[in-house]
């Protein structure tokens, strides 16, 4: 990866507050095409807010976000066209069937019915949901819904894929498939912005890891680079950089409470 390439996503001086609580505090980021970015941080660090700004869910923010050279403020629609988003908390119209849902989201990207049907059928069959295409999703398990969401986020063949905890609810096999899908997509030159709490997965799949804490980026580099100054596993690096150095003590307090 050459640092001379043009960044596909560049975020500069991004601030965001809810009321008087500052959630993002001067985020600066450059992401290059074909990378898998692992975006990690403790609960409430500002991960989801970043993702929501990037995907256009939160339109009001301070600072500048450019995607493929376009300004998120003025060219939001064109950016959304090349973006695929797989949300974290399984927000889906579950009284619809997967096919109906995908026909709907596909049409929002201007795909034709035939293309949508064809892709939906092939993608969901690959996920083992071929039989469930015409069943309403209110009876689906979390993993099944997640597969539909993944399909819906990738069906329009986006160049940038934003994944927010995409593996939640998936069984072990589906996790393996999904990891493989991610690395194939990145080989094809797609950029993947991957948010997760699963440190072992992030450690393995990410080309670059960005750690955010209290709205500030505290680490940004390859896993190898991060290892040099903080620890030998991403878990330890995470703990070290987020200031929770004494996790054993936390566990001690917790255990003592029930034993006394």
């Amino acid at each position: 990866m050459s640092s001379h390439a043009i960044p596909i996503i560049s975020i500069s001086h991004l601030f965001k507050s809810y009321g008087d609580k500052r959630v993002l505090n001067d985020i600066n980021l450059e992401i290059y095409p074909g990378q898998i970015i692992g975006y990690i941080g403790p609960n409430g660090a500002g991960k989801s807010t970043t993702v929501k700004i990037l995907t256009g869910l939160i339109p009001d923010f301070e600072g500048e976000v450019r995607v493929m050279g376009m300004d998120l403020r003025t060219d939001a629609l064109d950016i959304k066209r090349v973006l695929g988003y797989i949300p974290e908390n399984a927000e889906i119209y579950d009284v619809l069937t997967p096919l109906e849902y995908l026909l709907f989201t596909g049409k929002l990207y201007d795909l034709s019915d035939t293309v949508i049907r064809d892709r939906a059928e092939r993608m969901l069959s690959a996920f083992g949901l071929g039989e469930n295409l015409n069943q309403r999703m209110d009876t689906f398990s979390k993993g099944m819904k997640q597969k539909v969401l993944i399909t819906s986020g990738l069906m329009h063949n986006p160049s940038i894929i934003v994944l927010d905890e995409p593996l939640s609810g998936l069984d072990a096999n589906a996790v393996i498939v999904m990891k493989e899908i991610m690395s194939r997509l990145s080989k094809e030159g797609k950029t993947i912005f991957y948010c997760s709490h699963m440190m072992d997965v992030v450690e393995k799949v990410s080309d670059r890891i960005i750690l955010i804490n209290n709205g500030i980026i505290v680490a940004n580099g390859t896993f190898e680079e991060l290892k040099q100054n903080s620890g030998d596993s991403l878990e330890k690096i995470f703990a070290h950089l987020t200031g929770e150095t004494n996790l054993e003590n936390v566990a001690d307090q917790f255990i003592n409470a029930i034993e006394s």
């Binding site: 256009g56 869910l57 959304k80 988003y85 908390n89 889906i92 929002l108 990207y109 201007d110």
Partner: peptide, 15 residues
């Protein structure tokens, strides 16, 4: 008013 609209429709290229 379906709160889900925001997650499902807003990230997509709809003006």
């Amino acid at each position: 008013i379906d709160v889900k609209d925001n997650y499902i429709i807003l990230p997509r290229p709809v003006n």
